[in-house]
Amino acid sequence: MDLLQLRYFQTVARYEHISRAAEELRVAQPSLSRAIARLEADLGAALFDRQGRRIRLNQYGVIFLRHVDRALSELDDGRRAVREARDTGLGRVSVASETLLTITPLLGSFRTAHPRADVRLFQSNVQEMDRQLRAREVDFCVASQPLSGANFEAVELDREEVLLAVPRGHRLDGRESVTIREIADEPFVTTRVGHWQRALLDRLFASEGLTPLVSCEGDEPAASQDMISAGLGIGLIPAVSRKVGSHSRVPVAWVRVAAPDCLRVLTLVWNRDTHLSEAALKFREFTTGRPFVTHHLPEPDRE
């Protein structure tokens, strides 16, 4: 077996789909199938169960994948270590976040403090962040939902209140607070399943035995405030959104939600088995060694 076969196997095992794996690897499907067949012949065991055009990783494949992931990760860490020793900079730090609005000020401050660091930023939902950490594709995730893994470590960065944003002139405009039952029939603008805003909305309604009415859902949390302002519904928005960037000028009214856990908790999560460059170590120290700067809202009011 060779390194290329192992990378082919890893990708096919992730997708359990030859054509999708071939597309990502940019190789012809027949060539990929032959490479997997040669690997299985070398091992003396089939790694996938095949049913027509569908394939599924079998028990031997699961065992082998665990070792392949570890071996390829070690090789990738070795390459990074060599690059860092060769380069004059601090190396690279890769960060994934559910929304870019939250992480941008932090990364900007870090780059100012460490201009030689190479910073890479990814926008990912919670499922993708979990995969990226396990595959060691990123060094850190700034997550608003729990990420669990045997090798994951996390530090809480901040917790802030989440408010209800409503269009100006809405019946709730001017209210100090509302209960979940008072907004049970209101259409909500929110994110798709997998994002923290949707998870919070579903959890708050489930605690009252209710299901939210979703009128609009998307993948970009920062767009919710614009859609609420346009009258497409109401939505849960973190307090920081009132004060950061252009959204501070989007005309909506703000109301508190009478629920004790209507909060967003931000954590910095990393895989302790991942090699961290000097830049990544400095980012962790920079992020966890100082208060996480967000713009909190003291009292809801009209803007």
Rank of each mutant, 00 (worst) to 15 (best):
Q132L: 14
C216E: 13
P212A: 09
F152D: 10
V189I: 11
A184F: 02
V62E: 12
G44Y: 06
F64Y: 09
G218R: 14
D273R: 15
I63H: 09
A28D: 13
A222S: 14
A239Q: 15
P238D: 04
W270K: 05
P251V: 03
E160G: 12
A154E: 15
P146Y: 06
D219Q: 10
T88I: 00
Q123K: 14
R249D: 15
L65S: 08
P115E: 12
S229Q: 07
P105M: 08
R66Q: 12
D2Y: 00
C216G: 05
R34M: 15
A21M: 09
G231H: 01
L121W: 08
L232P: 02
G149Y: 05
P251S: 13
I36D: 10
F122L: 11
Q5M: 08
H67S: 06
E40H: 10
F286T: 05
T190Y: 03
D118A: 11
Q225C: 12
L57M: 11
R131D: 15
V269K: 01
S144F: 08
P167W: 08
F110M: 07
V265H: 07
A96D: 04
D301C: 13
M227L: 15
A239K: 05
L147H: 00
T11E: 11
L65R: 10
L57S: 08
V93F: 04
C216F: 09
T179M: 06
R168W: 00
L6P: 01
Q197P: 07
F64L: 13
L39P: 04
A258H: 10
R120A: 12
L157K: 00
P187W: 05
H17F: 07
L210M: 05
A199R: 07
A37N: 12
V178H: 07
A259D: 13
R302D: 10
R80L: 09
T99Q: 09
G231N: 02
T274D: 01
E40I: 09
Q197T: 13
L6C: 01
A135R: 13
E278D: 09
L213P: 00
T104C: 04
R70F: 02
A37C: 03
E160H: 01
S144V: 00
G174W: 02
H17E: 15
R80G: 13
E153N: 13
N58K: 05
Q145G: 06
V68H: 03
A154K: 12
I18M: 15
E160D: 13
L281K: 08
P298Q: 08
A253V: 03
L65A: 11
V178G: 13
S33D: 06
D158K: 12
T11Q: 08
H17P: 08
Q225F: 11
R26W: 01
G194E: 07
L204E: 02
I18P: 01
R92V: 08
A41C: 04
H295E: 14
P105W: 11
R136C: 13
F283T: 02
R50C: 04
F48T: 12
F152G: 09
L6T: 00
R7I: 10
R56A: 13
A165S: 11
